[in-house]
Structure formats: structure tokens, C-alpha cells
Design a protein around this nucleic acid. Structure first.
Length: 273
DNA sequence: TGTTGGGTTATAT
DNA sequence: ATATAACCCAACA
């Protein structure tokens, strides 16, 4: 109760940006205490600053062009800052920024979203952990397999939550796993989990482990692929059954039509009731 | 104590 | 109904 969520004002955001420019990221308490910024940030805690910076970073990250436009973007790319990342607009006298900035807000369109979903499915099928995989495992798998923005974790966990709420995935404790989906009537016999996980984490003999791991990853990938295909196949079977049913019906109609035609041609009067 | 990542809740679209 | 912004919590140094 008593938690109306106070939104960040433009002044606060600017103070935070300036604070990060001055102290660097991670120095949240310093920024908050700094007399230069405190007047704006006194009502915010250091972790509020951290969270806000995280949110701003996510919003600033336009994950559109995959190959990162080599064309020198009009805006300078963090030139003077020591380690500041998401500086979109040089503070200066802001006033106008909506016109230009509005066009490139974070816009996770359906395509991107389902792309992430697909990656999640891929990761889960590949990792193939009967108990499910936690977000870290999923994200790191995805990061290895795809070129994704750094803060993709945020998106992934959001997607995970959504998939769970839609009962596409199930969550046990911190782990997510694929939900057993019942394709058509045929009771799917359990895929027979042989439960062979090499799982050697020995730092010694690294090259051996690495090879094995690579093999495991490759195998996992094949499995994922196969599963994908089998899913498609299952769908195809369903479709075939459907078509076949339709064919049967069509056949019946055809017979009926034939009979009607014959009778009519004999001069009979045929009534359909 | 402060930072951080993972997670949840409220809100705007 | 979903994506996002604000907020919370627990682990870690």
C-alpha cells in the first residue's frame, strides 16, 4: 500500500546521466550523494539509480540492424565519457528531442519477440535438461548461438514469463522446461529419457573437455533440429488426417450425387429432405 | 554497506 | 493482453 510508483522526471534522468558521466556506472551512492545531483536525486536510492540506468539502457538499445550500421551515425558514440554506455543525447539544452528520438524507441515487434521465443525453444530442446534450465543457462546458450544485444537477458526473462503464463513452458523453481504438448489423439509414449549427461566440469584436460563439450553441443543441436522436424512431421500427420477425413466426406457426397443423377436421368423425382 | 542480477508489480499502450 | 518502468529481494564483496 502507499506505493503509487513515482515516475522519473526528465530532471532526474538528466541528473542521473550527468552523474554517470561524472562518476561512472556503478557509483550509484556517490552519484546520489553528490551535492551537484542530490537536489534532484534525494528521493531516490542508490539502487533506484541502478535500476533506472538499467531501464534506460534497455530502452536506448535499438536492436534493429543486425550488422550494426557501419555508417558513422550522426550522433557521437560515447566519445568523451570514461565508461558511460547509453548516452543518447548530449545533455546540453535539451528542449527538443521528441521528434528525432521518438522514431527509434525500443520496439520489440512481433517478429523479434517470436525470434526470442524460437531461441528459447531451441535452447531448451538443446540443453535437454529434464528438470529444466534456468535463465542463465538459457541466456548463455542463446548468446553463444546467436548475435544478440547484451541486455537480451531482460527480454528473454520477460519472454520466459510470458511463455509460462501461456502454459507453453512450465517453471519449476528457477528452471524452465518445455511443456509436454499432446499432439492429436495418439498418446505420445514418453520419449524415453536415457539421461546420459557427460557433465564433466574438470578444468584439467581442458582440451579434452572442450572437444567433448563441442560434440555435446553439436549433438544437442542435432537433437533440437530433429525434434523440430518431428514436431513439423506431427503437424503434417494431423493435417493429413484432416484431409483424409475431408476426402471421405467428399467421397460420400460424390456417391450421393451420382445416385441422384442416375435417378433423375431415369425420370425419377428425387426429393432431398 | 553498496553493488548487482534476478525477479515481481504496477502502469501505459 | 503485453511491453515497459518502477520497485523488491537476496547474494556477494
Amino acid at each position: 500500500m502507499g506505493n503509487p510508483k513515482q515516475k522519473w522526471t526528465a530532471e532526474e534522468e538528466e541528473a542521473l546521466r550527468a552523474g554517470v558521466a561524472k562518476h561512472g556506472t556503478g557509483k550509484w551512492k556517490n552519484i546520489q550523494k553528490d551535492p551537484e545531483f542530490n537536489p534532484y536525486l534525494y528521493s531516490r536510492s542508490n539502487i533506484d539509480l541502478k535500476d533506472k540506468w538499467r531501464n534506460m539502457s534497455v530502452s536506448a538499445n535499438g536492436q534493429d540492424s543486425p550488422a550494426a550500421t557501419p555508417t558513422p551515425s550522426p550522433m557521437s558514440q560515447a566519445p568523451a565519457g570514461p565508461s558511460a554506455l547509453p548516452l543518447l543525447n548530449p545533455v546540453s539544452t535539451d528542449v527538443h528531442m521528441d521528434a528525432a528520438a521518438a522514431s527509434k524507441s525500443l520496439l520489440v515487434d512481433g517478429k523479434t519477440a517470436s525470434k526470442y521465443d524460437a531461441m528459447i525453444y531451441e535452447a531448451l530442446s538443446a540443453l535437454k535438461d529434464p528438470n529444466g534450465s534456468d535463465t542463465s543457462a538459457i541466456v548463455s546458450f542463446i548468446e553463444k548461438r546467436h548475435e544478440v544485444p547484451q541486455n537480451v537477458r531482460r527480454h528473454i526473462s520477460s519472454r520466459l514469463r510470458r511463455l509460462v503464463s501461456h502454459e507453453k513452458l512450465e517453471k519449476v523453481q528457477n528452471c524452465y522446461r518445455l511443456r509436454r504438448l499432446v499432439v492429436n489423439g495418439t498418446k505420445g509414449p514418453i520419449p524415453k529419457p536415457k539421461e546420459i549427461r557427460p557433465r564433466l566440469s574438470g578444468p584439467i584436460n581442458s582440451h579434452l573437455g572442450e572437444t567433448l563439450e563441442e560434440a555435446a553441443v553439436a549433438a544437442a543441436y542435432k537433437v533440437a533440429e530433429a525434434e523440430n522436424k518431428s514436431f513439423v512431421a506431427a503437424e503434417a500427420v494431423k493435417e493429413a488426417e484432416r484431409v483424409s477425413r475431408m476426402a471421405e466426406e467428399a467421397e460420400a457426397f460424390l456417391q450421393l450425387a451420382k445416385e441422384i443423377y442416375e435417378r433423375c436421368s431415369r425420370g425419377e423425382v428425387v426429393m432431398l429432405v
